[in-house]
C-alpha cells in the first residue's frame, strides 16, 4: 500500500491526479493545417511526416536521424538546471505536400515519400535525406549532414553498417538487442534498443497473440547484410506491421552521444 510520510511521493501522486484531471496529452509535433496542406514544426519534422503517412496508409515508413554534431543544428532546453540532456535538434518547419493523403494518392509508394522529403528539403537546410524501399516499407535515411564545422558531408548511418548476428534462439527483444549491439560495436556510437510500448511482453505480443507471446523465442540470425536489412528481415516475421524511428541524442561530448532504435507498431 501507499508509503506513509512520503512527501515527495505525495507530490508525485498529486501531479498524476492533476494530469489525469486535466487530461493532458503530449503532442510530439506541432501541426497546423492550412487549406489542404499541413505544416509541421518540430525537432524532427520528417519523422512526424512519417508518422502521419503511416497512420494514413497503415504501411511502415521508417525514419533515421543523423548523428547530430554541428551546434547549428541544435537547440538547448534550459529549464532543467541539473539535467544531463539539454541539447535537442532545433525546430524546423515544412508544409507537407497536399497530395500526401490517401484521397489524392491512393497507394503509398516511394515516390510519394520522396515528394515529401523534397518538400522538406526545399524549405530547410541540411541534413538532407534519401528515400529507399524494402519488403517492409519505405525508409527515410540521412544523405548529407553537417560535420562539426558545419560542412556538408555524406552521412555515416548507423543502419548502413554490416552486421553479423549469429543464429541463436532468443526472445524478440534479444534479437533486436543483438542488432543494436552489432551496430554499436561497429560505429562506436551506442545504439540503444527501445520497444516503445508499455507492459510485459509488449513487443512479443506484436509478434504473436495470446499466451504464446509469453514463451516466444525463435532461432534467428543475420550475416553479410546491413543492419537495416537485418531489421527488415526480422520485422517481417511479426504478425503486426512494425516500423522504426532511429533518433539520436546530441551532446557536446562525443562519448555522451547515443542513438535509440525505437520499434513501434504501425497504427
Amino acid at each position: 500500500m501507499r508509503q506513509p510520510g512520503s512527501t515527495i511521493w505525495d507530490v508525485i501522486r498529486n501531479a498524476v491526479a492533476a494530469i489525469i484531471a486535466v487530461g493532458a496529452v503530449t503532442s510530439p509535433a506541432a501541426l497546423a493545417q492550412s487549406g489542404s496542406a499541413q505544416t509541421i514544426t518540430s525537432p524532427r519534422p520528417l519523422a512526424d511526416a512519417a508518422d502521419l503517412l503511416q497512420k494514413e496508409y497503415l504501411k511502415p515508413v521508417t525514419y533515421e536521424d543523423p548523428v547530430w554534431i554541428w551546434p547549428g543544428d541544435l537547440a538547448t532546453r534550459d529549464n532543467a538546471q541539473n539535467a544531463r540532456w539539454t541539447l535537442f535538434p532545433k525546430n524546423r518547419s515544412f508544409a507537407v505536400p497536399a497530395e500526401a493523403n490517401a484521397a489524392q494518392t491512393p497507394a503509398l509508394n516511394p515516390a510519394l515519400i520522396a515528394a515529401v522529403v523534397q518538400a522538406y528539403e526545399g524549405q530547410n537546410d541540411a541534413p538532407t535525406f534519401l528515400v529507399t524501399a524494402s519488403g517492409l516499407g519505405v525508409h527515410i535515411v540521412p544523405a548529407q549532414v553537417h560535420d562539426a564545422g558545419g560542412q556538408l558531408v555524406a552521412a555515416a548511418n548507423a543502419l548502413d553498417v554490416q552486421v553479423a548476428i549469429p543464429i541463436a534462439q532468443r526472445t524478440v527483444t534479444q534479437h533486436f538487442q543483438a542488432i543494436c549491439d552489432g551496430v554499436s560495436a561497429s560505429t562506436g556510437t551506442p545504439l540503444r534498443f527501445n520497444a516503445a510500448g508499455v507492459g510485459p511482453f509488449w513487443l512479443d505480443r506484436l509478434f504473436v497473440s495470446g499466451q504464446a507471446a509469453q514463451q516466444l523465442s525463435f532461432s534467428w540470425g543475420a550475416s553479410g547484410v546491413t543492419a537495416r536489412a537485418a531489421l527488415v528481415e526480422l520485422m517481417t516475421r511479426s504478425a503486426t506491421a512494425l516500423s522504426w524511428r532511429l533518433f539520436c541524442q546530441p551532446s557536446t561530448t562525443a562519448q555522451d552521444r547515443f542513438c535509440v532504435l525505437n520499434v513501434l507498431p504501425v497504427r
Binding site: D65, G197, V198, W202, R205
Partner: peptide, 12 residues
C-alpha cells in the same frame, strides 16, 4: 519533443 525515445504506445 526532440527526445531520442519515441512516445510510448499503450499496453497490450
Amino acid at each position: 519533443p526532440g527526445s531520442p525515445y519515441s512516445p510510448l504506445s499503450s499496453p497490450i
